[in-house]
Simulated assay, not measured.
Amino acid sequence: MKDVNHEHEILRIDDAFKSKKTQDKLIISNDIFTELSKNNEKKIVLTKGVAGIGKTVSVHRLILDWAEGNTNQDIHCVFLLPFREINLMTNEDFSLHELLLEFYPELNDLEKSKLYKECKIAFIFDGLDESRLPINFKSRSLNTVEKKASVDVLFTSLVKGTLLPSALVWVTSRPAAANQIPPQYVGLFTEVRGFTDQQKEEYFRKRFTDESLSSRIISHMKMSRSLYIMCHIPVFCWITATVLQDILSENNEENISTTLTEMYIHFLLIQMEMKNQKYDEQEERERTEHLRINEKNFLS
């Protein structure tokens, strides 16, 4: 029998984060297609990152800046296709145009021939790790937007470049699922790595206008090595800010002991309270009452 590992598994995140090569190039999301086009005929970007690290936020940031005319204005159309929604469309064959109409009905008002022949298009497939498609890059490929096929064939045809070779494709995924796309089809590999130690502090100072509160939260975060490491994930900074703001507003003590488990429980209680206020039309409920009401949800 192997020795028991007494160190929390999240501490491995710290080692992985520190071991990244410092010579890697920093690319902001708005420049991702520009970097792809540099001396590269392939049109695919593959971005990986752990859950909550900011992949979807990066996607939405690019789309928003593009829509506001601030970046990537050489692209005429950007289509966001989340795998979470694509999963609901696996029992029917579509042409590419029919698939896009499911997400963007307003395309009916555009002339189809001009859209695919004259426009520069970018497809963003968000969350490959959530895909339930039987992705197989050795299966048949499509080469026209009129032909119908299963959604997985449409996806692989776009990635391989047989369908709309001029189109740009950006795929995001958690690391474990990223290898579903063969590397020979990818022109640019990127990774979202989260906050540095300095950015963690910047997040809390920008989150709260009360400097005393932000300083107390930062101090508490640094007291727990596990919490400090986890806060390199932006969504965990948000959870930490939500929980500690609630705790510290009711407790003036400097040293407050909260384990990660206690923080998760406290965050869950806060979300339950918000849910009950919103949907049960009552301003306040005792938290013990929340637990009783939601007992079935926890046990299921």
Rank of each mutant, 00 (worst) to 15 (best):
H97T: 10
K160S: 10
S95H: 02
Y104M: 06
A176D: 07
T196I: 00
L88R: 09
K114S: 15
D126I: 12
F103Q: 13
T190D: 11
T196E: 00
Y185P: 08
G161C: 05
V192N: 00
K114C: 00
K200H: 08
C119Y: 10
T156S: 12
K148G: 07
T172F: 06
G161A: 08
E202C: 03
P134F: 10
S150I: 01
N179C: 08
P105K: 09
C119T: 14
P182E: 04
D126V: 06
K206C: 13
E130C: 12
A177K: 02
P175G: 11
S113Q: 04
D109W: 01
E98N: 08
Y185F: 15
F204E: 05
V153E: 07
I75S: 07
G127Q: 02
K160W: 09
Q184W: 09
K147F: 09
E118F: 06
C119Q: 15
E98T: 03
D74R: 14
K120F: 01
L88N: 15
A122I: 09
F79H: 03
Q184S: 03
P134L: 11
R207S: 05
E102K: 02
L100R: 12
L168D: 01
L158C: 12
V153H: 10
R207D: 01
V171D: 08
K148P: 03
L100Q: 05
F83T: 07
S150W: 07
K114T: 14
L154I: 04
T156D: 06
L115H: 12
N108F: 09
T90F: 12
M89E: 10
F79D: 02
R193W: 03
R84Y: 13
R205C: 11
R132E: 13
L164G: 08
T190L: 14
L115K: 07
E92F: 10
E202T: 10
A177N: 07
F208A: 01
N179H: 09
L158V: 06
P165H: 12
S157Y: 05
N87S: 11
S215G: 00
T196L: 04
D74W: 14
N143W: 04
E191G: 00
S113R: 08
L168G: 09
I124C: 00
T190C: 15
N179T: 13
G194R: 03
S150N: 11
Y203F: 15
Q184N: 13
A122K: 08
F208Q: 07
L154H: 05
P82I: 08
K147Q: 15
E102R: 15
C77A: 05
I121A: 00
K160T: 01
L158P: 04
R140F: 01
E118L: 11
F103P: 14
R216E: 02
F204V: 08
R132T: 01
R205P: 12
D210S: 14
S113Y: 09
L158M: 05
I121H: 03
L164P: 03
T196N: 04
G161Q: 02
S131H: 12
E92D: 09
D93Q: 00
H97M: 06
I75W: 11
C119V: 06
E111V: 14
